[in-house]
């Protein structure tokens, strides 16, 4: 298959890559760009482990073609914080033990941030429905909800 050249901005950096026409954005990120923070749990949009934001909206990167993102802006978990600082959500996940194995964590953090960007003060129910596309098998979600709410509270007063 002939490859396609694509120019994008990823985590604030101008990024060019080539990919096959049928290659997913997730495969591009992981296999061509070394951005392995997004995980593949299913490849069919059912688990949310590969969540990234594409032009400000969160998507499953497994359901996006690499070829589609020409001219787009993408943020992955690797772009959530810069330098040695952690985003308040990242810190809250550590403080509240909101991860056990941690494989779903990057996707959940990206999704939670996308919600708080739209709604800084969600109810637990809103949060649970927003995160319904992010499967976690370890925690039962409880500490995840607590961590996001704690981070949201801190972000509102920051």
């Amino acid at each position: 298959m002939k490859t396609i050249q694509v120019a994008t901005t990823i985590n604030g950096d101008a990024t060019e890559f080539v990919c096959a026409p049928d290659e997913s954005l997730l495969d591009v990120l992981r296999n061509r760009l070394g951005l392995t923070g997004a995980k593949e749990g299913c490849g069919t949009g059912d688990c949310g482990a590969c969540t990234v934001t594409l032009d400000g909206r969160m998507v499953c990167s497994c359901l996006v073609l690499g070829a589609e993102v020409e001219g787009s802006t993408i943020t992955t978990i690797e772009g959530m914080s810069t330098g040695d600082a952690l985003h308040p959500l990242q810190q809250a996940f550590i403080d509240h033990a909101a991860l056990q194995c941690g494989i779903c964590t990057p996707g959940i953090l990206v999704a939670a941030k996308a919600l708080l960007d739209r709604n800084p003060d969600p109810t637990d129910t809103e949060l649970r429905y927003w995160l319904a596309g992010n499967l976690c098998r370890c925690t039962g979600y409880d500490k995840i909800i607590a961590a996001v709410q704690d981070a949201a509270a801190k972000m509102r007063t920051a």
């Binding site: 951005l35 392995t36 997004a38 978990i77 690797e78 959530m80 952690l86 990242q90």
Partner: peptide
């Protein structure tokens, strides 16, 4: 914790 919330932890496929 920090590696896992930053997406840096290395899992099986990474």
């Amino acid at each position: 914790g920090v590696d896992k919330v930053k997406g840096r932890a290395m899992y099986g496929a990474d």
